[in-house]
């Protein structure tokens, strides 16, 4: 296992917005660039780690660009930072560029949508423990629910990096085709070959798509699609690892499937956070204590957000 980022230097950095693009109907990718200042740089962030963005000063989009359902949210003030993981990180010369996948759901993400090239954003990061990159395993299975695809795109890139012999497959689910947080689907030939999602195809990663309403790929839950696929393969459990990010009910199901087959599984959890740096104690995740019936609360921001799935007591 390589470094999961737990030891990296966190700090407060100023980032400059380099892009802010809409993807499909409801998703966006925000690009931020960090320059090294006085020898201190936003060091490489690991897949699954996150950053806290201060969006309070970001401009709201123009009145026409505010979705009808968010008219009230647009009138709300914000003070707290918001946590986001990275869907890409690139180190170039002495600069670091990161991309963040987001959708517009409330007062903070509305402001995020209002950001444009050259705007400055205060960022605290990189934070938390990311996914462990299990170099010794041969098969990595990525399960993404909705927005959970973000950090898994970056993970796919790292897992398939130079000298990697790992075979990676991603399972991406959403309620409808419209809610899949990806760019336009690839052409028919690519799709037949199993490269449905461009973000993953870029790294040579095959993908399976599931939608609740069947408007794209498998009709039903991504966990059913994943379970069915696993049943058809004959992967050696010891040589396989599952990485999942998405709604908690999905994570619980993936954890169960992995446990039944004795496959290692890491899940990226989500909690409301005030600080992201271990001060506020609000983002707790209930975890089992080994060899006992007891449980403890661990902090999503510092002990996670990525946890070994066997450890987590998922909330129902």
């Amino acid at each position: 296992m390589t470094d999961n980022g737990a030891g990296s230097t966190k700090g407060v950095y100023e980032a400059v917005v380099c892009s802010n693009k809409q993807i499909g109907r409801s998703f966006y990718r925000l690009g931020l660039e960090f320059s090294s200042v006085g020898g201190k740089a936003f060091v490489e962030a690991r897949p699954g780690q996150f950053a806290q963005l201060d969006l309070a000063a970001a401009p709201l989009p123009s009145a026409e660009a505010i979705p009808e359902g968010l008219a009230d949210a647009a009138r709300r003030g914000i003070i707290l930072r918001r946590p986001f993981s990275f869907c890409d990180v690139v180190r170039k010369d002495r600069k670091t560029q990161v991309e963040i996948l987001y959708c517009v759901v409330g007062p903070a993400s509305l402001r995020m949508k209002g950001l444009s090239g050259g705007d400055k954003v205060s960022v605290i990061g990189p934070l938390g423990r990311g996914f462990s990159v299990a170099e010794k395993k041969r098969h990595a299975l990525l399960v993404a629910g909705g927005m959970g695809a973000g950090p898994l795109v970056y993970l796919a890139k790292v897992l398939t990096g130079e000298s990697s012999k790992m075979e990676v497959v991603v399972f991406a689910g959403a309620r409808t085709r419209e809610e899949l947080p990806f760019r336009r689907p690839l052409d028919e030939i690519s799709r037949q070959l199993g490269f449905s999602l461009g973000e993953f195809a870029e790294y040579g990663v095959k993908s399976q798509v599931a939608t609740d309403d069947g408007t794209a790929g498998y009709e039903g839950l991504v966990t059913d699609c994943f379970s069915k696929w696993l049943g058809e393969q004959n992967l050696p459990a010891r040589d396989t690892i599952v990485y999942a990010c998405g709604p908690e009910a999905m994570l619980a199901q993936v954890a169960e499937i992995a446990k039944d087959r004795n496959i290692d599984c890491e899940v990226s959890m989500e909690r409301r956070m005030a600080c992201g740096i271990g001060l506020c104690q609000s983002c707790v995740v209930e975890c089992k204590v080994e060899d006992s019936n007891e449980s403890v609360y661990k902090l999503c921001c510092e002990d996670g957000p990525v946890f070994d799935s066997r450890e987590v007591v998922f909330s129902s």
């Binding site: 914000i78 707290l80 909690r271 409301r272 609000s282």
Partner: peptide, 23 residues
């Protein structure tokens, strides 16, 4: 003390509520 279950915080206009429960 383990403290309270989640959610333990919520933001408001110009403020926040917490209910950590002496964790």
């Amino acid at each position: 003390r383990k403290g309270n279950p989640t959610p333990r915080i919520v933001e408001t206009d110009s403020g926040m509520l917490n209910a950590i429960g002496w964790a």
